[in-house]
């Protein structure tokens, strides 16, 4: 039972919490706001919150100057593709670890996670050469594979924690009922784990969408996603703040909106099942 709190206290708490939250959110808000200003009001001092000249020109110009739809589509294909491929490989592995645990299961999980600790920069040259040699360089297939492998440990780990919450008796019941292993996974485990699979999927789409090392170093034009799009938009002169903001908004908006809508599932996923 939550304790009853006096209204005055609640007002005070609410004000404090909202101030902090708005402060954290402010850079995102300010970027979106700036993207609708003219370049002149974007750099005005003191900063203009509402008195600026509003315009959509920045979006029009960014849209005209680069092939946004292609970057966007590449981001979608790469993040969704690598996540789906990862799930297909990870679901059976997570089943094994959750329901037929051995002495080495924990070690295996830790080993998987430790592969993520290898600094990407350390293996940049070999990866570059491998991608060149195999014709995967600057292809969406190549990035789907690379990001799938990069996020596979996270996918396996998250699924493992979700699967462990499913009582093994239910899978045994399916086995008694005559289900083969494949049917057990398809008809019983997967439908029961849908919420967990969904949050795993969401988190990994976001991680893949925001990945900015391999997506930049292993692409040039054809497969370049939004991370490369934004990297090409640096504005050191400060004269193009509004356009930079518009490009930034265009790069983050899709995932920001997806994230807002799935915030509840995401938070559960983020905790790797380690926090109930």
């Amino acid at each position: 039972m939550a304790r009853a709190v006096s209204t005055r206290r609640k007002v005070f708490y609410t004000a404090a919490a909202w101030s902090v939250a708005l402060l954290i959110f402010f850079p995102v808000f300010w970027t979106i706001l700036t993207s609708f200003k003219t370049e002149a009001s974007a750099v005005a001092s003191p900063p203009q919150l509402f008195s600026a000249d509003w315009t959509l020109d920045n979006y029009a110009e960014v849209w005209g100057r680069s092939d946004y739809p292609r970057f966007f589509w590449n981001s979608v294909v790469i993040s969704v593709g690598s996540t789906l491929l990862g799930l297909i490989i990870a679901i059976p592995a997570a089943w094994s670890m959750a329901f037929v645990p051995g002495n080495r299961t924990k070690d295996l999980l830790m080993w998987m996670l430790s592969t993520k600790m290898m600094p990407a920069a350390a293996v940049l040259i070999p990866m570059y050469l491998i991608f060149q040699r195999t014709g995967l360089f600057d292809t969406r297939t190549g990035l789907v594979l690379a990001l799938m492998l990069m996020n596979l440990p996270v996918i396996v780990w998250m699924l493992y924690t979700y699967f462990k919450e499913i009582p093994s008796e239910i899978l045994e019941a399916a086995r008694m009922d005559g289900a083969s292993l494949g049917k057990e996974i398809i008809y019983v485990l997967t439908p029961m784990a849908i919420p967990g699979i969904a949050s795993t999927m969401l988190l990994n789409i976001i991680l893949a969408w925001n990945e900015a090392f391999w997506t930049i170093t292993l692409t040039t034009v054809n497969a370049a996603p939004l991370s490369a799009f934004i990297a090409s938009f640096s504005a050191p002169q400060g004269l193009f703040y509004a356009k930079l903001s518009a490009a930034s908004t265009m790069a983050i908006a899709p995932i920001l909106i997806l994230g807002w809508f799935s915030q509840k599932q995401l938070v559960r996923g983020l905790t790797f099942g380690a926090v109930k």
Partner: peptide, 28 residues
């Protein structure tokens, strides 16, 4: 703490997580 609008609050607080690192860096 007991506050109004905990849902929207969480959305505000989680937002930076969705911003890709190069964008975050260039905004700042």
């Amino acid at each position: 703490l007991p506050v109004w609008g905990q849902g929207p609050l969480r959305i505000l607080v989680i937002s930076p997580f969705f911003v890709m690192p190069p964008v975050a860096a260039s905004i700042w």
